[in-house]
């Protein structure tokens, strides 16, 4: 009796294991097919993230269309980066090749992940790490979510570019960009100005330890590849605070990194009435030109980077820079024409 009962249990367990194995097989097949579909969508989303209009083709994937190890200066961070630094102008000013890598709302774990990918193709001598994105994830759960997202984005970038999936015309766009990551914007929308915006304070914004850890890993990666790292705070009226500045200064001294806070340094030069595209969040073309001038000067003063202008190997950069200028001029003329038309309609 006992034996039969044991046999019965054994049979039951065996059947359960078999059915569990079958279930696991089904689940894995389902996930496999789903993975393939997501991979296909991801590929499409990366292609649609580009633009057929050369002036608005600022996709970060453009860096991988550049010649290997041809970029001298890399700026990496969130939307402030693609709004605030014009590589074509930097070339015009100093003959330095650069790329502005910024994804909207980019987080430090993503920065680290992107840097690893970039270093497979490029070896910039100077890397500016934008610090605005160090203040985004304040809570542990936010940081863990950012780490997860950074991991998912690698095989499935559709989670990053899913809103671009309706731009079918961009299938025809090119990987290679003349903007080198910069997004042209000419709107000027003034923010609500605060009286004590730049007033000094002793307060220091806390940077979450996980955020800091990822920044340190990024810095370590850059140093290992022989790049000099600079912590850069691109002007942003809405998001900059004096306590953020203090936190960045403290971080810079602890990590032995130079800090370039252009919010404070350029407070006289940046006119928030004319230099921001969206009420103080991001710079427009006018503001970005000023920042690029300042960066060119900073690089000239602190680094011995080669001026490639006139070097036949860099002819394409000269052409791209001219093409960019041409596109900007066309856009300005187009805007003036639209303005006149509107005025005439109004009259």
């Amino acid at each position: 009796m006992q034996k039969r009962s044991e046999d019965g249990d054994f049979e039951k367990n065996r059947a359960e294991i078999m059915s569990n194995k079958k279930a696991a097989g089904r689940i894995l097949s389902f996930l496999g097919i789903l993975g393939i579909l997501l991979f296909g969508l991801s590929r499409a989303s990366v292609l649609m993230n580009r633009s057929v209009h050369p002036l608005f083709n600022y996709a970060t994937s453009g860096i991988f269309a550049e010649e290997k190890e041809s970029i001298d200066v890399l700026t990496i961070g969130d939307s402030d980066v693609y709004s605030g630094l014009i590589p074509a102008k930097l070339w015009e000013l100093s003959g330095i090749t650069s790329f502005s890598w910024g994804e909207p709302a980019q987080r430090p774990p993503e920065t680290y992940s992107y840097l690893k990918k970039i270093y497979q193709e490029q070896n910039p001598q100077v890397v500016f790490i934008d610090v605005n994105h160090l203040f985004r994830d304040e809570k542990l759960s936010d940081n863990l979510d950012s780490i997860t997202r950074a991991a998912i984005e690698k095989p499935f970038p559709v989670v990053l570019y899913h809103r671009k999936l309706d731009s079918f015309q961009n299938f025809l766009a090119q990987d290679y960009t003349i903007t080198k990551g910069y997004l042209y914007r000419d709107d000027a929308k003034k923010p609500k100005m605060k009286k004590n915006h730049f007033k000094e304070t002793g307060k220091i914004t806390a940077i979450h330890p996980i955020t800091r850890w990822y920044l340190e890993r990024s810095v370590e990666l850059c140093r290992k590849n022989g790049s000099s790292v600079v912590l850069l705070y691109i002007p942003t009226y809405k998001e900059w605070t004096y306590s953020n500045h203090n936190a960045v200064m403290e971080l810079g001294s602890e990590l032995g990194l130079p800090v370039l806070d252009l919010n404070l340094e350029m407070q006289e030069e940046i006119d928030w009435g004319t230099d921001t595209a969206d009420y103080g969040y991001h710079l427009n073309y006018s503001g970005a030109q000023k920042v690029t001038d300042r960066i060119a000067k900073y690089l000239e003063d602190n680094y011995d980077l080669e001026d490639h202008r006139g070097d036949p190997a860099y002819q394409r950069w000269q052409k791209d820079s001219e093409a960019f200028r041409g596109e900007v001029e066309k856009e300005i003329l187009e805007k003036e024409r639209r303005e006149k038309e509107r005025q005439m309609q109004g009259a």
Binding site: L38, L41, E103, P104, V159, H162
Partner: peptide, 12 residues
């Protein structure tokens, strides 16, 4: 896929 494509998440 609908959640991934049409979801109101991410930048903005």
């Amino acid at each position: 896929l609908a959640v991934v494509i049409f979801g109101a998440y991410g930048p903005g």
